[in-house]
């Protein structure tokens, strides 16, 4: 079960990133024809980000403490001290932006240039923050892997 949750949370994160990228591209080409699709995509961003929050949060609170101790004792303690700490708190930025995105796309972004710019910025920030968090997750994973390899070698 722990492994399923471990893999589910970055998967939901990637799905949220892809949906946000979809919103970004559709907003760039906003027309009367793609408004419904854009709002569906924005709703998917929210759904996937909340799913990532719950899955990642559950894993972090329940399963991560022994791994944290392992990483801190290993050759890459910064994988936790810098990358995990930054990632876990930075996550709240795309979470809030994901909750906001469906509200932002409810405007007339075909006619209103400012409203379109807002949607582009919010969706773009979700993509960039999401990629940074996924990358940080890879460093945390490698920190644990190196620590395990070291523990086995001893």
């Amino acid at each position: 079960m722990a492994d399923i949750i471990l893999f589910a949370h970055p998967t939901f994160g990637v799905m949220a990133i892809l949906a946000a990228l979809w919103v970004f591209v559709d907003a760039l080409n906003a027309s009367a024809l793609n408004q419904t699709r854009l709002r569906v995509a924005a709703g998917l961003v929210t759904f996937f980000m909340i799913s990532a929050w719950f899955a990642g949060g559950y894993w972090y609170v329940v399963w991560f403490p022994p791994e944290k101790a392992l990483i801190l004792a290993g050759p890459w303690p910064f994988a936790h001290d810098l990358f995990m700490e930054t990632k876990e708190h930075l996550f709240f930025v795309p979470l809030i932006l994901s909750l906001y995105l469906p509200i932002a796309v409810a405007n007339d972004i075909v006619r209103n240039q400012g409203a379109r710019r807002l949607v582009l910025v919010v969706a773009g920030l979700i993509v960039l923050n999401g990629l940074a968090i996924e990358g940080a997750g890879a460093v945390v994973n490698h920190g644990a892997k190196l620590a395990l390899a070291g523990a086995h070698a001893r």
Partner: peptide
């Protein structure tokens, strides 16, 4: 204004 709000959101992030 949308553009100003977009700039504020980007700055905060």
């Amino acid at each position: 204004d949308g553009s100003r709000l977009a700039a504020a959101v980007a700055s905060a992030a």
